[in-house]
Nucleic acid binder design. Structure first.
Length: 577
RNA sequence: GCACUCUUAGCUCAGCUGGAUAGAGCAUCUGUUUUCUAAACCGAGGGUCGGUGGUUCGAGUCCACCAGAGUGCACCA
């Protein structure tokens, strides 16, 4: 139940009727009309700009238009207590208290779907996120994007869309060869006591490779590890498999499960790259040419090469992009073109890619390709998550690839926990850099927004516990005939904003709105709770140790929204803390 | 040199397709525990929304230019 949409519909029906009767002109588009939350210092519940939108075509001031509308709106709605016009032409509506009875009844009847955006057309989404190279476990740097992608998926699923969460496995190319060589050397080290060539900068020195090597040895007794060339094919498969096992475990501790892992090697072996390039050639978007050196830089060692290029400049990119290396093998970009073609062929309405800030420069070329391959339908949305600045012991913590100098997901979660990590990483817009201070994230106080919100739920649970009710069970209340006080209505108004929060989060793919909303709601609840100290009527459990029905449904609706939101964020709502 | 993102209180940030007197938290100062969970709450101070123009009934939000910060910019993936 979205009361803003409800009243927007009512107003639009009204003005269309007036237009038909000949007493009101309408502009070409009614899209500018909205019903919104009034500023906090106004004593009203809804506010609309309809008069300001209509004033121009009717050649009347917004105030005059508003005054002709308010009596009509009020006379047709018995739940409105008062309606007024404010400069420069807003119409402000205040409901009778009975309205909030209806509201709360309505929400509790179908609380699982409260907030679901019923206007949104149901679509098929494919969201690709994480897609870290399968050369080892995930580290902190992967977390933000991983959580961002997961929660965007949760929001879309909450809104009843069809969502497939996908991980693109870059198991092809030089990095994988080097990774496999590293595993090979670790195996030789274990079996033949050969020293690992630690000085080779192409190899991966990490300790986890020893575990991978041991696992491979144990599970493949029949394999001989004499010459790299002889086992490279098989060892690549095994090494990637081990690596993916690690990654999946890491994702699982973050609470993330992908629906599909697509292998780059498979795309290449299926000749999908050749096929898609043929397709682009027919569209005259692929040619043999040279890339010019960028201006203004030191380009002394710039080598101009004739190579196969994709004409991404047709779509606004700064330069055309290489599809083939000088040895004629495919670039990463080429196989990614094929992968995106593969996605398109699977019939999704919207493709979403979650990228780290360091890959933002890649967006233009890949969206160009999708545009070209989908005949101009612009169905790829790229979401960039900005850097996370780690702060440990009050100082910035710089990660480097050198051994021991980086924090894995496992380290992170065992130190601060899954819930705190998810909540804090989401608490800011993905467009801004995020300070992740280990000490603060671990803190169990109101300085930590996760606990602040969880504590709100725990307080509600404690009330239920005191009167022997189960917060997880549906209430069986038929009579909704309550009189809510001003302070309670303030919270109910906040509850009524929940569908708006979901709508904005979903439309713009901005999950941070949810933790921000939950924090605000919790703040209002904690405030109300403390009023009970001075005013016994504000307490939930009365002196006969009973909780009245009005308080009960009131608590229920708050707890439902908090739980619903926390489910989307992917964190627990403990009943006791 | 180019591209993308950011610039809002001392610090970290919200601000919903342009809306009314710009909001939180931290920090600072101050009060609240015989009480449903003090992991909480009440109150105070703190602002030229980076700058300059423009668009209009109306700009923190849109446009142009300028300044600053971050990230990236060949065949790595």
């Amino acid at each position: 139940m979205n009361i803003f949409d409800l009243y927007l519909d009512k107003i639009i029906i009204l003005i269309k009727r007036l237009n038909k009767e000949g007493s009101l002109e309408l502009p070409e588009s009614l899209n500018g009309i909205n019903v919104d939350i009034p500023p906090p210092n106004f004593d009203c519940d809804l506010s609309t700009n309809v008069a300001m939108v209509l004033s121009k075509v009717n050649k009347k001031s917004p105030i005059v238009v508003a005054n002709t509308l308010i009596n009509l709106i009020k006379s047709e709605d018995e739940k409105i207590e008062s309606i007024s016009v404010a400069k420069p032409g807003f119409i402000n509506i205040k409901f009778k208290s009975i309205y909030w009875n209806n509201f709360i009844e309505n929400v509790n009847e179908n609380y699982k779907n409260f907030g679901v955006n019923i206007k949104e057309e149901k679509k098929k989404y494919l969201i690709e996120f994480v897609s870290a190279n399968p050369t080892g476990p995930l580290h902190v740097g992967h977390c933000r994007g991983a959580i961002l992608g997961d929660v965007i998926s949760n929001i879309l699923i909450f809104n009843k869309h069809d969502v497939s969460k996908e991980y693109y496995v870059n198991d092809y190319g030089n990095q994988i060869i080097n990774f496999t060589k590293s595993v090979f050397h670790r195996i030789r080290e274990i079996l033949n006591n050969e020293k690992f060539p630690i000085d080779n900068p192409d190899l991966y020195p990490g300790d986890y490779l020893v575990n991978i090597a041991n696992n491979i040895i144990d599970n493949n007794k029949n394999l001989k590890f004499d010459k790299f060339e002889d086992v490279s094919k098989e060892l690549t498969l095994l090494s990637v498999e081990e690596s993916l096992k690690l990654i999946k475990t890491n994702l699982a501790i973050l609470g993330i499960v992908h629906d599909k892992f697509t292998s780059e090697t498979e795309i290449v072996l299926n000749k999908e790259v050749e096929k898609v390039i043929q397709n682009l050639k027919e569209k005259k978007l692929v040619y043999e040419g040279k890339i010019k050196a960028p201006k203004g830089e030191d380009n002394d060692n710039w080598v101009e090469r004739e190579q196969l290029l994709f004409k991404s400049t047709n779509f606004g990119d700064d330069k055309d992009r290489a599809l083939q290396k000088s040895d004629k093998s495919w670039t990463y970009f080429a196989s990614d073109v094929a992968y995106h073609n593969n996605k398109l062929n699977r019939g999704y309405d919207v493709l979403i890619n979650i990228l780290g800030a360091d890959h933002a420069g890649y967006i233009k070329r890949i969206s160009s390709v999708v545009e070209a391959l989908s005949s101009g339908r612009n169905i790829l949305i790229c979401k960039v998550s900005q850097l996370v600045k780690l702060i440990k012991d009050g100082k910035p913590f710089k990660m480097s690839k050198r051994k021991g100098d980086y924090i894995t997901v496992e380290d992170l979660i065992s130190e601060v926990g899954k819930d705190a990590t998810r909540f804090i990483m989401l608490n800011r817009s993905s467009d801004v850099e995020l300070d992740f201070d280990f000490a603060k994230v671990k803190e169990k106080s109101k300085d930590n927004p996760l606990y602040y919100v969880q504590y709100c739920f725990a307080r509600i649970s404690s009330v239920f516990r005191h009167v022997d009710l189960d917060i997880n069970k549906d209430l069986n209340i038929r009579e909704y005939d309550f009189q809510y006080s001003k302070d309670e209505i303030k919270i109910l108004k906040k509850i009524s904003e929940w569908p708006k929060c979901i709508e904005a989060a979903s439309l713009r793919l901005e999950p941070h709105r949810i933790p921000v909303y939950l924090y605000e709601l919790s703040s209002e609840f904690h405030s109300y709770w403390n009023m009970g100290k001075d005013d016994l009527s504000k307490r939930f459990i009365n002196d006969q140790k009973i909780i009245p029905n009005d308080k009960l449904v009131f608590l229920k609706v708050i707890s439902n929204v908090i739980r619903s939101g926390m489910n989307i964020v992917g964190v627990d709502t403990p009943e006791k803390m």
